[in-house]
Structures are given as structure tokens and as C-alpha cells.
Amino acid sequence: MTATTTPDTPATAAPWAPQGTLTIDTVTEHWAALHACIGQGQPVRADLAGITRVDTAGIQLLLVARRTAAGVGQDFSVSGLAVPTETCELLGITNDAANAAHPATVVGQEG
């Protein structure tokens, strides 16, 4: 589902820009901040440029965030994290190029 905008109410993305690691040790604190962004009722943009390490718990957090945002009709996008094309396909996200210069966008919205 895509956000609808009018000249009086432009849709702005709720930014979420964590720093450090996105791992089993940090997902609980990251989820609290990310969930608050989803609760704002606008598209959520996860800027992961400040992330130095991601494990499977971090990937699971992003997948849950995508599903949660979709459940309330919000778009969820991810940028700043280099993800190989094969991994993107497996996780249901798209990546315009398989290098760090292009952001990956989480998909799964129907509209």
C-alpha cells in the first residue's frame, strides 16, 4: 500500500537510524524505537548506514517491522545497508544494485 499525499499534507517518512550493531544483544532496544516509528502513522524509513554488524536476529527484526508496518498500511523502506542480490530475493526485499551505493528497499506492500 502506498501513502497518499495531498498538497496540504505531504507524507514524510518516520526516520529510524540506529547506530552500532543490530544483533541478538540489541534487538530489544532497537525494536522499541522502531515500533514507535511505526506507530506514528506514516511511512517508516530505516537508515542502517550506522550499523556495523547484523546477525539473524537483526534480519528478523527488519522482517517483523516490515510485516507490522504492512499490517497498519504503512510503507517500510531500508537504506544504507549493502545486501547481496540473492539475499534480498530470499528475504523478500529489493535492491536496485548489488552494491553499497544503492539502498535496499523492503517490499511486501500490496496496493
Rank of each mutant, 00 (worst) to 15 (best):
A3H: 06
A3M: 07
T4C: 06
T5R: 06
T6W: 03
P7C: 06
P7K: 04
P7I: 05
D8W: 13
T9Q: 12
T9D: 13
P10Q: 08
T12M: 11
A13S: 13
P18C: 04
P18R: 02
P18V: 03
L22C: 05
T23R: 10
D25Q: 13
V27G: 05
T28R: 14
E29D: 15
A32L: 13
A33L: 09
A36M: 08
C37Q: 15
I38T: 01
Q40S: 13
R45L: 15
A46T: 02
A49N: 10
R53N: 12
D55Q: 10
A57Q: 03
A57W: 10
Q60P: 01
L61I: 12
L62Q: 07
L62W: 00
L63S: 10
V64R: 09
V64Q: 10
A65R: 00
R66V: 06
R67V: 00
T68V: 05
A70W: 01
A70N: 09
Q74N: 09
Q74W: 00
S77F: 01
S77N: 04
A82K: 07
V83P: 05
P84Q: 12
E89T: 05
E89V: 04
L90C: 13
L91W: 07
L91R: 05
T94C: 05
A97H: 13
A100V: 10
A100W: 06
A100E: 14
H102P: 00
V107W: 05
Q109R: 09
